[in-house]
Amino acid sequence: MSIALEAVGLTKTYGAVRALDDFSIAIPAGGVFGILGPNGAGKSTLFRIALGLVRPTSGSARLFGAAPGDITALRKVGAMIETPRYPPYLTARDTLKMLALESGKADADIGGWLERVSLTHAADRATSGFSVGMKQRLGLAAAFLTKPELVILDEPTSGMDPAGIQEIRALIIDLAKIEGVTVILASHQLDEVKRVCDRVAILSRGKVVAEGGVAELTAGEARLRLTLTSPLAPALAVLGDRGEADGPDAVLADIPRAEAPALIRALVEAGVEIVEARWREVDLEGVYLKSLGQTPTAATAEGAA
C-alpha cells in the first residue's frame, strides 16, 4: 500500500511554542483519514508543512514520497487549509479558473464543480460578498477541481449550516469511495469524523496520542454499568480491580462483553441485587477525551446490555 503523507520526526517551533514535537505518522493512500485534536495540537501546522507553506524545524514530511513543494507531488494534491480566503475582486468562477490555470489544468470542469458544491447561483459574484459557508464550499470545489489523488481538508464544514454539512459529508464520502480520492481531514467535529473517516489519528501538543480505525479505537472501551438495590461492597469484592463505584447505587465493570453473563451470575450468587445492567459505550469523543487525559464520562453514550 502506498503512503500518501508521511512525517518522520517532524518538529516545528514558533518561538517558544512547539507546534509539532517529534511527530511521526504514515497515512496510507485510499479512504478518508481523520486528524483530531484540540486547537494548537498541530493539525494545521502538519498540513502547512506537507504542502510547503511552512518549513519544519527538524524532521521531514513527504507527499507520495516527494518533498513538500515538489511539483510532481503538488500536482497530485488538492487542499483547503483553514478558512479559505480569496482575492476579493475575483468571482467564484474566476477564482476556480485562476486556480485551474495555476495547476496546469485549464480544462478543469469549473461549472460542474460549482454545481456540486451548490454555488452555481453565485458563480459570477465577487467572493468578497460570500458568507463563511459559501467560502468553504468554494474552497472544497478548489480542492477537488483538478482531480487530485489526495485532498487535504482542514475543518471543511466549519461555518456551514446543517444541510450544507450533510451535503459536504456526502460529497467527501462519494469522492473517497467512488472516485478513489484519498482524503485527509482535520476536524473538531467528532461526529463528522466518525461518519466520514475510516481511520483516525488523535493529536495532542504536537504528538500522535492515538491512531487506528474508528471501530478499532472505540472497541474494548465499553463498560458494564450495574444498578443495584443492595450495598455496593459485595459487588465490588466480586469485581476486584475490574470494577469501581459509579454513584451510590451502581458499579462499573471493565469486562469483555462475552464475560457479562458469567459476571452477573457470580454477582447474584454473592447476594448482589441487580435491577439494571447496561453497556456504557465509549464513542469516539470518549476515546478522544481519554487520549487527551480528560474525563470521558460526560461524553459517553449508553446502550442496553
Partner: peptide, 18 residues
C-alpha cells in the same frame, strides 16, 4: 504582495513551486 494582504498564498502554494 497582494497574496500577503489577502492571505491567499495558501490557495496558490499547494499548486505550483514557490
Amino acid at each position: 504582495a497582494g497574496d500577503y494582504r489577502w492571505e491567499t498564498w495558501r490557495l496558490l502554494t499547494p499548486r505550483n513551486t514557490r
